[in-house]
Design a protein around this nucleic acid. Structure first.
Length: 423
RNA sequence: GGAGAGAUGGCCGAGUGGUCGAAGGCGCCUUCCUGCUAAGAAGGUAUACGGGUGACUGUAUCGAGGGUUCGAAUCCCUCUCUCUCCGCCA
């Protein structure tokens, strides 16, 4: 959520930035400015009358102590109309605040100046490509067939007990999951992230804090009876650890990481592109979350970017880094880098990580601030990134590393899997 | 799920319907003092939104929301959460 004062004072710039995200209702900006104007005027009136009423009440108190009953009655005669005015104005004020809030949450975050214009994934800027695409053996198989061939993942069985998109990992397939999670967590720990294990359901306030709610209910599984949501990413619970918190400036940056399963309804997805592990309703992911000083957040974004790349390099996977264009970025982000790995048998790039700086968009909703020795509390910048999401990593490992003799596990992972081959 | 108790500032904790944005303690910050691993003294120390170039100032906030009252941390109602005991259970 953008800050009203910022919108008010930087109207032209806000409009210009929103255009980069192809925001469809720029008139909302002026509606917000108008509502804010009304709100402030109403507050001024309300405050003045409340002050008057407070003064009268205080005076009555003094007079009562002196036993001057008649004078008290004279003052009381006036307070009735003050009360009515206060009631009317505060109703107005609450209404205006509510409207303002409703409008504000509809504005997406402003993209960073480096974000290219564009309308779809085709307009994303390829920042770099790393590694060499493997030459596959003849009769190379896509990962879903490899998973069946080596009895690693059972999509049918998952279908039976839950539904499509909930695979069952078996034997070395299951061990590979566990190995990847531990590998990613160890790497995060080595980079000074503190590991946390958050709940995998969250309440509404948490969903609002990181920007999933309102409006994106359809992407999350909802437990109606208890009004809880299954998390779509660990970003939600981990960032919300700091909701309504004022941290000390010298504690920044605050680095947390965590492994969780993630749940996504993925309503409307279909076709060959969602086969196998390409798109699931439940998957595992290790997430990095940082709270940063505004002066440092872009440097930290680069560091996170580098961290994710180091994981892909360790896993010997060819990858590329994209700078997302305005049209492909999320509602909440200021700048996002996506990492995609090459899946050789499908001959496709698959997104495995998304690293973003949200600047103050989330922290404004979360009321997450920092305070130095002097001065007012300021909103922190929040950042997060997948490091990494498992399914497409597995897809790529299986497809890229298939040989006549089985599937080779990359060296860095062998201490975790305790096996070098799947065969 | 049943019964009871409770929710006050960073923490602990007091609070009679007016003198309470809130005693006291701890913590923290600044200054002073004392030459010694420390102690003492003074002052300061919530947040949001307004108004003012600024010093400053108004309003709101004692779990949340309503109500009673000229006036509510204090009285009433609803909700949420926490704790204790019982039940169930990994």
């Amino acid at each position: 959520m953008l800050q009203v004062a910022y919108i008010r004072e930087n109207r032209a710039q806000v409009l210009e930035r929103l255009a980069v995200k192809n925001f469809k209702y720029p008139e909302l900006v002026d509606e917000i400015i108008k509502l804010d104007e009304d709100r402030r005027q109403t507050q001024s009136k309300l405050d003045a009358i409340s002050a008057e009423a407070n003064a009268a009440a205080k005076q009555i108190g003094d007079l009562m102590r002196q036993g001057k009953k008649e004078e008290v009655e004279a003052i009381k005669a006036n307070t009735g109309s003050l009360k009515e005015q206060i009631k009317t104005l505060s109703d107005q004020f609450n209404e205006l605040e509510q409207q303002l809030q409703q409008q504000l949450v509809q504005l997406p975050n402003l993209p960073h100046l480096s974000v290219p214009k564009g309308t779809s994934a085709d307009d994303n800027e390829i920042v770099l490509e790393h590694g060499i695409k493997p030459n596959l053996i003849a009769n190379a198989l896509p990962h879903w067939e490899l998973a069946a061939k080596y009895d690693l993942i059972d999509f049918e069985l998952g279908n039976k007990i839950a539904g499509a998109g909930f695979p069952v990992y078996k034997g070395k397939g299951a061990k590979l999951q566990r190995a990847l999670i531990n590998f990613f967590l160890d790497r995060a720990e080595a980079a000074d992230y503190r590991e946390v294990q958050p709940p995998i359901v969250v309440n509404e306030a948490s969903g609002f804090g990181t920007g999933q709610l309102p409006d994106k209910e359809g992407q999350m599984y909802h437990i109606g009876m208890d009004n809880l949501y299954l998390i779509p990413t660990a970003e939600v619970p981990i960032t919300n650890l700091y909701r309504d918190v004022i941290v000390k400036e010298e504690e920044l940056p605050i680095k947390n990481c965590g492994y969780t399963p993630c749940f996504r309804r993925e309503a409307g997805s279909y076709g060959a592109h969602v086969r196998g592990l390409n798109r699931l309703h439940q998957f595992d992911k290790v997430e990095l979350v940082q709270l940063a000083h505004p002066d440092q957040s872009y440097q930290i974004l680069d560091e996170m970017n580098t961290h994710v790349q180091s994981l892909l390099q360790a896993l010997e996977l060819p990858y590329r880094v994209l700078r997302l264009c305005g049209g492909d970025m999320s509602f909440t982000a200021s700048l996002t880098f996506d990492m995609e790995v090459w899946c050789a048998a499908q001959a496709r790039w698959l997104e495995v990580s998304s690293v973003s700086n949200f600047e103050t968009f989330q922290s404004n909703r979360l009321k997450l601030r920092f305070k130095g020795k002097e001065g007012k509390p300021q909103l922190v910048h929040t950042l997060n990134g997948s490091a990494l999401a498992l399914p497409r990593i597995v897809a790529s490992l299986l497809e890229n590393n298939q040989t006549e003799n089985g599937i080779r596990i990359p060296k860095a992972l062998v201490p975790y899997t305790k096996f070098e081959w799947i065969n």
